[in-house]
């Protein structure tokens, strides 16, 4: 039995993001969550492992805050949760994240398939899956809407801009899934209770032969602030629905739209 590894990121929930008066961004009150699209990667790992008889496991790189993610991830079906615990995850760029995850995957060993989402819901940079593949020098297939493992190959359907492409790749391989690949179910009570009993393993950077200096940001961060969309923000205030509609039509005329 080989490992089928679903990678996920514990992110700040963007719904809790607060913008200060000076346009700075306050994430301090944001709750954490498993990045939305990573739930698709976890579900895909669980489903494929059922068919191949392999073991679905999860892997995350996060600070101490990410510890709470393990139970959530395991309630979605995987057998074991791996967590690289490092504060450096908070500032990690795509290079650092894929370097750490690739090193952990090597350390975990005996892997045949690594599943990632296309991108994380905070940065949506879409770098980590292919970055892991490059660092392990294994193939990568992104934009996956479906896949099937047969022996030593995986057949993947990909959604590109103008076509659907079916490719075959040799295992081991990194597959980056699009959200339409599946609909992750909400874990039931039993699954949540069972998750608490599943094994977890905590790794440290030094276990992976890495130090914080290996993870230094490659670009210099100059700004991180609220993006302002310049909109008129006019709420039409007519007394009746008909009045409001009339005002809207008048405004659309004024704008030259109609």
């Amino acid at each position: 039995m080989a490992k089928i590894i679903a990678c996920y990121k514990w992110v700040a929930d963007e719904a809790d993001l607060r913008i200060n008066a000076d346009m700075s961004v306050d994430l301090s009150k944001a709750k954490g969550k498993i990045s939305d699209y990573d739930k698709n990667a976890i579900e895909a790992a669980v489903q494929v492992a059922k068919g191949t008889g392999d073991t679905a496991v999860t892997l995350t790189f996060g600070s101490g805050k990410a510890k709470q993610s393990l139970k959530d991830a395991l309630s979605r079906g995987p057998a074991e949760g791996f967590w690289i615990n490092s504060g450096s995850a908070e500032k990690a760029d795509g290079a650092a994240s894929s370097k750490v995850l690739a090193a952990a995957i090597k350390e975990m060993g005996d892997y045949k398939l690594i599943l990632c989402a296309e991108g994380a819901s905070d940065t949506f940079a879409r770098q980590v899956g292919p970055g892991i593949a490059a660092r392990l020098d294994i193939p990568c297939v992104s934009s996956a809407t479906g896949f099937e493992v047969n022996g030593n190959t995986v057949t993947v359907s990909r959604k590109l801009e103008d076509c659907v492409e079916v490719v075959a790749a040799d295992l081991p391989v990194v597959v980056c899934v699009l959200p339409e690949i599946n609909q992750p179910p909400i874990p039931g009570l039993k699954a949540v209770l069972d998750a608490g009993k599943k094994p977890t393993r905590e790794l440290r950077l030094e276990d992976l032969g890495l130090s914080e200096t290996d993870l230094a940001a490659k670009t210099e961060l100059q700004g991180f602030e609220a993006y302002v969309m310049n909109r008129k923000n006019v709420i039409l205030s007519g007394d009746s629905a008909a009045d409001k509609v009339k005002e809207l039509v008048a405004n659309l005329k004024k704008e030259g739209i109609i």
């Binding site: 970055g131 992104s142 590109l160």
Partner: peptide, 23 residues
């Protein structure tokens, strides 16, 4: 930044261990 381009770019950055700015 097309589907193919993004994958190519991120793998290239991975092989180079260099920084990347997406989109």
């Amino acid at each position: 930044s097309t589907a193919r381009g993004r994958e190519l770019a991120a793998k290239t950055a991975g092989y180079l261990d260099c920084g990347m700015v997406s989109d």
